[in-house]
Every structure is written in C-alpha cells, then in structure tokens.
C-alpha cells in the first residue's frame, strides 16, 4: 500500500518535471503549453520587444511588410525574421509554412482567426493594441513564463525598474508634460490611457491631460491645446508638413507655456506611439532626461 502510494507520488513528480507544463491566464482563458517553444510567431510589435528582452528571436513577425517599422534598438537585438504580413490581416499561409510551435496574438485584431491559429500551433492571446505601460509589463511576465525564463524575466524587470527609477530621478520636475501626434489635418494628444502617457506617469511626471481617463487619443484643436497648456510638449509628426506648421504662424502658438519657455520638441512617432515595450519605454525616458536637462 505504502509502496503503491510512494510510486504514485514519485511518478507524479517525475511527470511534472519532464513535461514541465506551464499555464498562464490569457485573454481567451487559460493557456497551457507542454514544452518550451522554439519557433515563435508574433502578430504585434510589442511582443518583439518582450521577446528581445529575454533573448528570444521570433521566426515570424506581422510587421506590415516593412521590418523598419520596428525601431533599431529592438530589431538589432533579435535575428532577422520572416514577415507574415499586415498586423490587421496576417497571412495564415505564411504562418503555417513557418511551422511555429507558439503564436502570440492580440485580442483586438486576431480574435476572429483564433480557431485557425490554434490549428497551426498553440496560440496565446495577450493584450497589445491600446495597452498601457502596466499592461505591457504584465504581458512581458506572461511571455517570459511561457518561454520558461522566469529568472531572466525577474532579473530584467528588476533592471528595468531600477533604470526607470534612476531616469525618473533625473527628470523630476513640476512641469506638465504632453505627447501628441499630428498630420496635415489634425493633432491628437496622447492622454494617460495611452502608452506614451502611462510611461510619463510611471516616471512620476504630470501629464497635461491628466483628467482625460477615458479616451487614449484626444482630438485637439489649437484652442484646446492652449487650454491644456503643457509646459513640455513633444510632437510626433506624420508627414513633411503638418497642421502644427500652420499653428506656428498663429500668434496664439507663442502663448502656450511650452513654446514660451522653449520646451517644444519633435519626437519620433515610431518610438513614442508605434513600438510599445520596455526597450521603447527606457528610450523614451532617456529622451525626456536629455530634453529636460538641456540648458
């Protein structure tokens, strides 16, 4: 009897050790995988950042057909990948032909093909599009767990927080910050619910649109921009000329606090808006330090 029980317990331990089945909570429920995946296909930019942080290279990335959509700081950390097409409609054929053993998908964009993806390989659905800084860190931990790299994740997270804290100390100011993107016909402020806004709050900075908790991207006229009146204003411009070029000729532009004190800067919209992740967040923080401590 005791022998049988012993055998049972022993076999149980052995099986968990060899199979090493891991589970995480994903957007579809609980995701379980039996072995550490080797060939990973990711369907959003932020997942590449997460993988790069634990030294894993994805075999396929939905990069909208252009690898340059990812900033160099991220793409230089991983091996070249095969493009699997647009993020909004990744090519199932290419994904299948890469023979992946893990697919990381976004709930907004990829939910409709979840069943098809599962037929190709185990698929974990994690938040990416419209995520905040904290969401992104949670996703990173989950991806690390699936890749069997809990220790590396812990170390990297610790390093990241230390880094962010040091940078935060160097910035510390009472200024009200704001990031916005502009094209020829309009300007959108990224509030605290956006990635850029939440990174600023992580650094202990005040966001000029702090009250706007519902909408991530706030459509803004010059009148409303004056009302928000940021002390430090970062602008990511899409295109050669934008609406801001016209605004600059308006006398009201010079009444804004950021322009009065010469704290209006241009920023790379790829870094500030497209590529979310820890590497991007650190680069953003470094950029802020540099800008603030400029004489």
């Amino acid at each position: 009897m005791t022998q049988k029980l012993f055998l049972f317990v022993a076999s149980f331990f052995i099986s968990t050790l060899t199979l090493a089945s891991t589970s995480v909570n994903d957007e579809m429920g609980v995701f379980t995988i039996d072995s550490v995946p080797d060939r990973v296909v990711v369907l959003e930019f932020s997942f590449v950042d997460a993988l790069a942080n634990i030294g894993v290279s994805p075999v396929g990335v939905a990069d909208d057909g252009d690898a340059n959509n990812l900033i160099d700081a991220i793409s230089s950390k991983v091996n070249p990948w095969t493009s699997v097409g647009n993020r909004y409609q990744p090519s199932l054929e290419v994904i299948a032909s890469l023979k992946p053993d893990l697919i990381i998908a976004d709930p907004d964009r990829n939910a409709s093909i979840y069943e098809d993806l599962k037929r190709i390989a185990p698929t974990v659905v994690l938040k990416s599009r419209g995520e905040t800084y904290q969401d992104n860190l949670d996703t990173f931990v989950k991806i690390g767990t699936i890749m069997g790299q809990e220790t590396a994740v812990k170390a990297r997270l610790e390093e990241h927080h230390q880094r962010m804290d040091t940078l935060a100390e160097q910035i510390s100011s009472n200024f009200r910050f704001q990031f916005a993107v502009a094209n020829e016909r309009g300007l959108w402020m990224h509030g605290p619910k956006s990635y850029a806004g939440s990174v600023m709050e992580r650094l202990g900075l005040r966001v000029a649109t702090a009250e706007e908790r519902e909408t991530a991207y706030i459509a803004t006229t010059l009148e409303q921009l004056l009302n928000a009146n940021p002390d430090v204003f970062l602008l990511g411009e899409y295109g050669e000329t934008t609406i801001v070029d016209t605004w600059k000729t308006n006398p009201l532009w010079s009444l804004m606090s950021a322009t009065k004190s010469d704290r209006f800067y241009e920023a790379d919209p790829r870094l500030w808006s497209l590529n979310r992740g820890m590497i991007a967040a650190e680069l953003m923080a470094e950029e802020l330090v540099e800008l603030i401590n400029k004489p």
Partner: peptide, 13 residues
C-alpha cells in the same frame, strides 16, 4: 486600414 497609426487622422478628415 493600411495606414494604421495614421488611421484616425485620415478618418477624421
């Protein structure tokens, strides 16, 4: 659709 991050800018217009 293809423009993605610009999408809302274009859509507004």
């Amino acid at each position: 659709i293809f423009a993605d991050d610009h999408a809302f800018g274009v859509y507004y217009w």
